[in-house]
Amino acid sequence: MRLFWLLILSCSLQPALSTQTVHRWVDSNGVVHFSDQIAAGSASETIEVNPPAPSSTPVTTITSSDSDMATAAQEPQAQPPYDITLQTPLESETLRENSGKVHFSVAISPPMTQPFQLQVLLDGAAVLRVPNQLAGDLENVDRGMHQIVIKLLDENGKILASTKETTFYLFRVSVLTQPNHQAKPKAGMN
Rank of each mutant, 00 (worst) to 15 (best):
R129K: 14
L90E: 14
Q87D: 15
V59E: 10
T21L: 00
Q119Y: 09
V130F: 09
L122R: 05
K101L: 15
P111V: 08
A125D: 12
K186M: 02
T19G: 12
Q178C: 06
P58L: 11
W25M: 00
Q87P: 00
L9M: 14
T85D: 06
M145S: 13
S44T: 10
D142P: 03
Q147P: 03
S105T: 02
I8N: 05
D142A: 15
P89L: 00
K158T: 11
G144K: 00
V127I: 06
S35T: 00
Q87I: 14
T166V: 15
P115N: 08
I84Q: 08
E91S: 11
R129M: 09
R24D: 00
N190C: 02
I148T: 03
P54T: 13
T71V: 13
P115E: 11
D27T: 02
P51M: 05
S42E: 14
D27S: 10
P51T: 09
T71K: 13
S55G: 10
L134Y: 08
L160V: 05
A125K: 15
E155Q: 14
I150P: 06
M189Q: 13
L160W: 05
Q114D: 13
F104I: 05
P58V: 02
H146V: 03
V141K: 02
L6A: 08
F116I: 02
I108Q: 04
V31D: 09
P131I: 01
T166N: 01
L170S: 04
G100C: 09
P110M: 09
H181N: 15
M145R: 08
R24L: 11
A125S: 15
G100T: 07
E48I: 13
P58F: 03
N156W: 08
A70T: 09
P115F: 04
W25R: 08
T85F: 04
